[in-house]
Design a protein around this nucleic acid. Structure first.
Ligand SMILES: NC(=O)c1ccc[n+]([C@@H]2O[C@H](COP(=O)([O-])OP(=O)(O)OC[C@H]3O[C@@H](n4cnc5c(N)ncnc54)[C@H](O)[C@@H]3O)[C@@H](O)[C@H]2O)c1
Ligand SMILES: NC(=O)c1ccc[n+]([C@@H]2O[C@H](COP(=O)([O-])OP(=O)(O)OC[C@H]3O[C@@H](n4cnc5c(N)ncnc54)[C@H](O)[C@@H]3O)[C@@H](O)[C@H]2O)c1
Lengths: 213, 213
DNA sequence: GTCGACATGTTAATAAAATCACATCAAAAA
DNA sequence: TTTTTGATGTGATTTTATTAACATGTCGAC
């Protein structure tokens, strides 16, 4: 299912809605109100309703939104119909955290492979995901039609890993390294840095503190 | 130093600028142009100049911006003068990843303590950070005047940890758990979920793929 | 010296995101 | 029945963020 020009922020929230809905889904509770979703995510009910409007979903005026239906619809919109395959490069603390968190989650996304350079990790299976030597990356990526790569190697290695991923035909990269990467325009790149998040919290915590004093 | 109403996004980028600048700082290279910063972070030079304008920094028309000066100024704005102390709750994969990444980074932010419930981790030092039993949390937080908490425990435990942090007087929380938390308005809360990032990449990778075909 | 190349700094315009305000409706209560 | 309550859906508006446009300034080449 395709909806033209869904705003970036809406896409992000749809993913969050789904996560939150999966969490409260149960036999007893089949419906949910916009203000309930809103409260969970610390946003306004209007925002929720507007997002759902954009994806063309209508709730029941008296009961709210059908949780199961909504989860499915969100899937139809943000997931790729044929599924997408994912690999993690760098099976250290962060790589492991990701894989173990990912395990057992829903999905059209499947975690297919990990890569590392450390012999102790290679040819072993971590949380259901096999780890290969980094040299095998191009081969495995192509063979399995993996389209998304997550980079969690030490930052100095990040650029060469990114290049290798791109050359192997990857379509999207999620970079957890603080090293800024350069990729062609047809590859979608997202970067995240924990310290930026922390500094943001620090800044607004300090500001809040002054305000509420 | 205080600048009224710095936009959220600008605060975020200032942190990123500093990180990038620290990375390229060297004896040979003392100055940098807005387009160089922009390229590293995949934004436009105008955006960079505008942000720097907002914090009142002027560059040299011919040489660009003085890297050292700029790093310092950003610090004056986003850091708290007296410094802020940080604790990590849950010393698992993610908690460790954070601490080891944090180590050796600049800072008015100091990582003071970790907390866990696993006896094997308690009373040991990980990457310079001592780990205490979770029961000691209120005491240690208060004693050390820790104002920021990072939550990386299993998600079921997150709400009680958050409550305990709030009761101990914390000012900001960074939650890596997928469980939505509720905290009073005077506590700044930031939540991050890797899977949302991944799903975003997946969505735009798929979209890009169609566009460039 | 003056011209061209190329930065910065800033105002104005545009775009993106969030919110307001209210029409609409379904069910419970009167 | 009729009224009240409390939800959804959405155009209009406001706020926030980004980009365009350009005035200004510096230096090197000619
Ligand atoms: N951005 C963030 O939020 C954040 C947070 C923590 C860590 N980090 C960064 O993420 C990266 C990983 O952190 P970590 O704590 O997991 O580190 P780690 O040292 O635990 O893991 C790195 C892994 O990469 C492997 N590796 C090294 N070189 C490799 C190569 N050429 N090819 C494949 N694998 C290779 C290592 O064997 C190791 O298993 C670091 O760059 C760190 O700075 C980022
Ligand atoms: N949001 C994300 O991006 C993301 C990514 C990966 C993991 N996670 C989440 O982060 C959390 C931690 O992930 P992980 O891979 O580090 O898990 P982990 O199991 O490796 O670590 C959890 C740690 O918390 C400790 N712990 C358990 N109960 C505790 C309590 N009551 N008090 C103090 N400590 C306690 C455990 O002993 C363990 O050391 C999980 O909730 C996971 O779902 C989130």
């Amino acid at each position: 299912m395709f909806i033209k020009n869904l705003p970036h922020k809406t896409v992000e929230r749809l993913s969050q809605y789904r996560r939150a809905l999966l969490m409260i889904l149960s036999k007893e509770k089949t419906h949910v109100f916009s203000h309930e979703i809103a409260q969970m995510l610390h946003i306004t009910p209007v925002q929720v309703r507007r997002d759902l409007m954009l994806i063309g979903y209508s709730g029941n005026l008296r009961k709210g939104y059908d949780i199961k239906e909504l989860i499915e619809l969100i899937g139809k919109i943000i997931d790729s119909e044929r599924g997408q395959r994912v690999a993690v490069v760098g099976l250290g603390n962060l790589g492991k955290a990701f894989i173990s968190y990912f395990k057992g989650k829903r999905s059209k996304l499947s975690m297919i492979a990990a890569f590392d350079i450390n012999p102790e990790k290679i040819n072993r299976v971590f949380d259901g995901v096999p780890c290969y030597h980094i040299n095998q990356l191009p081969e495995i990526i192509k063979q399995n039609n993996i389209s998304i790569g997550i980079i969690t190697v030490p930052s100095e290695q990040a650029p060469e890993i990114a290049e290798s991923l791109v050359l192997s035909g990857i379509k999207g990269i999620l970079n957890y390294t603080p090293k800024p990467l350069n990729v062609p325009a047809y590859v979608y790149l997202e970067e995240y840095d924990m310290i930026t998040s922390l500094e943001k919290v620090a800044f607004f915590a300090k500001k809040n503190d002054e305000r509420f004093k």
